[in-house]
């Protein structure tokens, strides 16, 4: 008879499983609420945008440099487009983050995909915000035929 305690030979049947760590907090709660709220807001913003750009007046045929330049001289459309950009980017990024969490099971895969996702988010939001606020509707030495009427007032 050996004197080895049997507890060392037979591992506890409950050993292999453990939730990796508790991740309690309101983050997922707020992001869940944000997805619903931003979704409703985006419906209004996007369909408003589509209606104004594609249906009012001559519709799609009047979209050119002058049209965009004219629109972005108005603070109203600046705020509208900024809201649309930010909400869409947060909403979409959060959605894709969820999909990555659901479909990628390895931590490394998740890490790489999410890094790429957040990188794309930062670039798009920074570039978009910059363009909305620094857009020059009347560049010097431009062909006057292409410019908005506000450039000649």
């Amino acid at each position: 008879m050996t004197t080895t305690p049997s507890a060392q030979v037979i591992p506890s049947p409950r050993d292999p499983y453990a939730r990796r760590k508790t991740t309690r907090g309101n983050y997922e709660l707020y992001s869940w609420v944000f997805m619903r709220a931003s979704g409703v807001l985006l419906i209004v913003l996007i369909f408003g945008h589509l209606f104004v750009n594609l249906m009012v007046g001559e519709g799609v045929h009047r979209i050119d440099f002058a049209f965009v330049g004219g629109k972005w001289t108005s603070p109203f459309w600046q705020v509208w487009d900024l809201l649309m950009l930010w909400l869409a980017m947060f909403h979409g990024t959060n959605g894709v983050r969820t999909i990555i969490n659901d479909y990628a099971s390895r931590d490394l895969t998740r890490g790489i995909l999410k890094t790429l996702l957040y990188l794309a988010f930062v670039i798009t939001v920074a570039l978009g915000t910059l363009v909305i606020f620094t857009f020059e509707p009347c560049p010097a030495n431009a062909d006057p035929a292409l410019l908005a009427s506000i450039c000649f007032e």
């Binding site: 939730r19 991740t23 309690r24 907090g25 983050y27 997922e28 709660l29 992001s31 969490n101 659901d102």
Partner: peptide, 14 residues
């Protein structure tokens, strides 16, 4: 509710 208000709790339900 505190226990289930987790990244792996109810919010993972699709």
């Amino acid at each position: 509710l505190e226990i289930l208000n987790d990244k792996e709790g109810v919010w993972r339900c699709r």
